[in-house]
């Protein structure tokens, strides 16, 4: 680890961005507990949520105290993508969110793991987990897209709804030195292929909106996020200084 202050600040910012992504998505997936369409999927979604939570804890600990960061920051201080904070919606929405995010996370972590930066050790472990998440999302996208008429309609709706949050994933993050344009190209190629195989239409709409582009990374979030945080943080905040 190099210790010039400037570098540390950049690493901290990057750890927050990646850590918040993992934390927030893990929280959303945790909301599925007891509500999944079939028991086998309860177990699968919880596995993914636990992987993400594990990543979040490592990343947030690189930036400070994990619990202080998770439970005591205000909404505007969170650096996660707007995509991951989107409510679960129906199972199709959750799968579309997983497909878009895990494909991005896989490409990003693969590149970080190959480098020798401060995130390489975490990325080397996480990329294997995320590879599985990506496969899970792909398998379900294929089944829902090319399943029944109803599932096709729902999956298409989900893909269309979340598409405008996908551009944000490739906005450069300070402290992360990767080829963002290359990542985006690879992401588009992979995602397009999965959607095509799933008999879904690749949305034509913009992948960023005036509000979406880079917004989560700058602390601008969507309305449901505030309520999510209120629920997540209230107990911890109700007992200042307590240990659990």
């Amino acid at each position: 680890m190099t210790t010039t202050p400037a570098k540390d600040t950049a690493v901290t910012a990057a750890a927050l961005a990646l850590g918040d992504d993992a934390l927030v998505l893990s929280h959303r997936l945790g909301e599925w507990a007891g509500n999944a369409p079939v028991l086998e999927e309860e177990v699968a979604l919880a596995n993914i949520a636990l992987d993400l939570l594990g990543q979040a804890r490592v990343l947030l600990s690189m930036a400070g105290d994990e619990d202080e960061l998770a439970f005591l920051r205000e909404e505007r201080a969170f650096r996660n993508l707007q995509l991951v904070e989107q409510p679960n919606g129906d199972f199709a929405h959750t799968i579309a969110r997983q497909l878009f995010f895990s494909a991005h996370q896989y490409l990003l972590y693969a590149e970080l793991a190959a480098g020798d930066g401060p995130f390489a050790p975490l990325a080397a472990k996480a990329v294997k987990e995320v590879d599985y998440h990506r496969d899970h999302a792909r398998q379900w996208t294929l089944r829902l897209g090319d399943g029944t008429e109803e599932s096709h309609t729902r999956m298409q709706r989900a893909v269309d709804a979340l598409w405008r949050h996908t551009g944000e994933m490739f906005q450069p993050v300070e402290g992360i030195d990767v080829d963002w344009t290359g990542l985006e190209t690879a992401w588009l190629e992979w995602t397009t292929e999965v959607l095509r195989r799933a008999t879904l239409t690749v949305p034509e709409g913009p992948r960023t909106g005036a509000w979406a582009a880079g917004a989560g990374r700058q602390g601008l979030h969507t309305e449901p996020f505030g309520r999510m945080l209120a629920e997540m943080q209230h107990l911890h905040r109700s007992h200042p200084g307590a240990s659990w």
Binding site: L23, H27, E31, G54, R57, E231
Partner: peptide, 10 residues
């Protein structure tokens, strides 16, 4: 969704 620490949440 309300677990008071990340360790407890996991």
């Amino acid at each position: 969704t309300r677990a008071p620490s990340l360790r407890r949440k996991a």
